[in-house]
């Protein structure tokens, strides 16, 4: 969680240098989900994700330097500069790709789950998406197929209540519980507070056990909140689509602080150790930025390089 937070904060800080020239969606405030879910995934398990995927990528163990280099549009980027922040990949850790069109990667994750079933359920396919995705037709099409085909798919819905600047009101009925709606399709579902990393961890753990035992998919919904603007490095509570009060409430539920307090209070680790961890993390992040800055830009003729395999 701390790594993801520090990386995202550094991007936010440096974005105005105008060197990261691509649409960038930060996940500050939502780190507990990536962390709690990822701890349950084995290297062989696959992940697909969305436009807001930095946390999912890092959680799976994706290479940090390559991610930053990708945002800088450099050859050392994880997509060699072709994709930018919204199109991350790290095959070494089975992070199979994040894509920028809402719902786009969801059926791809289902395909990965089907391939696993064909190989005797050797891996689990983790599929991240936001609650906005649940409004697309492809959402129910994908889940339906995973259910009828008994696929080892872990659907992870991060419900941060907003799609760009639209709250839920025009998009979903009041009091809808997404997990309950999906449960009615015939899939096992769980719901937890997405800002409590232990809850996320335990819930995911249950889900994975269920997938393995019954060879069936599971759907998880986690409630959380994005702190910064939908796309870009700034805060945007002032523009009027959400209230400062609501923001403050969620900021108070900072997933990192909550967990830190829990660890210290229960004497699991002492605060010094956490500080040390921050130090080493910050060094790591600084190294990644240095790596990205130093990396070369692709040459223009590479434009035609990867059109056909």
């Amino acid at each position: 969680m701390i790594l993801i937070r520090e990386v995202e904060e550094s991007i936010a800080l440096k974005y105005s240098e105008n060197k990261m020239r691509c649409p960038t969606h930060l996940c500050i405030g939502q780190e507990a989900i990536s962390s709690g879910v990822s701890l349950n995934l084995r290297p062989i398990d696959t992940v697909v994700s969305t436009h807001r995927s930095h946390g999912h990528y890092l959680g799976k163990g994706g290479n940090l330097g390559k991610m930053i280099a990708e945002i800088y549009g450099k050859t050392d980027g994880c997509s060699k500069g072709y994709g930018g922040s919204m199109h991350l990949i790290d095959l070494d850790v089975n992070f199979m790709g994040s894509t920028a069109i809402v719902g786009n990667s969801m059926p791809v994750g289902v395909g990965l789950a089907l391939s696993s079933k064909l190989e005797n359920y050797k891996s689990i396919s983790c599929i991240y998406f936001g609650e906005g995705c649940t409004e697309e037709g492809i959402f129910s099409e994908s889940i339906n197929f995973a259910i009828v085909s008994n696929l080892p798919a872990l659907f992870v819905c991060e419900n941060n209540f907003y799609s760009v600047y639209s709250d839920l009101k025009p998009r979903q009925p009041k009091n809808r519980k997404i997990h309950k709606m999906v449960s009615a399709m015939g899939i096992k579902t769980f719901y937890a507070d997405g800002n409590k990393v232990l809850d996320v961890y335990k819930t995911t753990n249950k889900a994975i056990k269920y997938i393995k035992k019954y060879k069936k998919p599971v759907f998880l919904e986690f409630a959380t909140y994005r702190w910064r603007e939908h796309c870009g490095p700034n805060y945007d509570n002032s523009i009027g689509y959400r209230t400062e009060k609501e923001f403050a409430k969620w900021k108070n539920k900072d997933p990192i602080n909550e967990f830190k307090n829990y660890l210290v209070k229960n004497k699991i680790i002492n605060a010094n150790l956490i500080d040390k961890f921050y130090l080493s993390t910050n060094r790591k992040v600084a190294r990644a930025f240095k790596f990205a800055e130093k990396s070369n830009f692709p040459s223009e003729k590479d434009l035609f390089k990867n059109i056909y395999a």
Partner: peptide
């Protein structure tokens, strides 16, 4: 434009 997808990198779009 050339018959390629639009790349993201600043360097690759120079003459796109």
């Amino acid at each position: 434009s050339p018959n390629a997808p639009t790349p993201t990198s600043f360097a690759l779009t120079k003459n796109f």
